[in-house]
Simulated assay, not measured.
Amino acid sequence: MNYITTADTVTATMLTGFFVDWPNPPQPKTHVTLLQNSDYVVLAVNEEQQVVGFITAISDGVLSAYIPLLEVLPNYQHQGIGQQLVTRMFKQLEHLYMIDICCDAELRPYYEKLGMTSTVGMVKRNYRHQSGHLKHH
Rank of each mutant, 00 (worst) to 15 (best):
S64C: 09
Q83K: 15
R88D: 06
V86L: 13
R88S: 07
L70S: 05
M89E: 04
E71G: 07
N75A: 13
G82A: 06
Q84A: 14
Q79C: 04
L70N: 07
L93I: 03
L85Y: 13
Y76F: 14
V72S: 11
L69K: 07
S64A: 10
G80P: 06
L70V: 14
L85A: 09
V86M: 15
M89F: 10
I81N: 05
G82D: 08
G80I: 03
P74C: 04
S64T: 04
Q84M: 13
Q92K: 04
P68G: 09
L63V: 01
V72L: 09
T87Q: 15
P68E: 09
V86R: 11
Y66L: 07
E71T: 06
Q84K: 14
L70C: 05
F90R: 00
G80D: 08
K91W: 12
Q79A: 06
A65F: 00
R88H: 13
A65G: 02
L69N: 13
Q92V: 00
I81S: 04
A65Q: 04
H78S: 14
I67M: 15
Q79I: 02
N75P: 02
L73D: 03
G80S: 04
L85G: 03
Y76Q: 13
G82Q: 12
V72D: 07
F90I: 00
P68C: 02
V72M: 08
F90Y: 07
Y66T: 00
P74Q: 08
M89N: 04
E71Y: 10
Q84N: 15
F90H: 00
L73I: 03
L69M: 13
L73R: 12
Q77C: 06
Y76E: 11
H78P: 00
T87R: 15
Q83W: 08
Q84P: 05
I81A: 13
A65N: 00
A65S: 03
H78R: 15
R88L: 14
P74T: 03
L69T: 09
H78M: 05
L63W: 13
H78Y: 12
Q79K: 15
S64F: 12
Q77R: 15
P74Y: 09
Q84F: 10
A65K: 00
Q77S: 07
H78W: 08
G82W: 11
Y76A: 01
F90V: 00
T87S: 14
P74M: 04
L63A: 07
Q83F: 09
L63Q: 05
Q84R: 14
V72P: 07
A65C: 03
V72F: 07
Q92C: 03
K91V: 01
K91C: 02
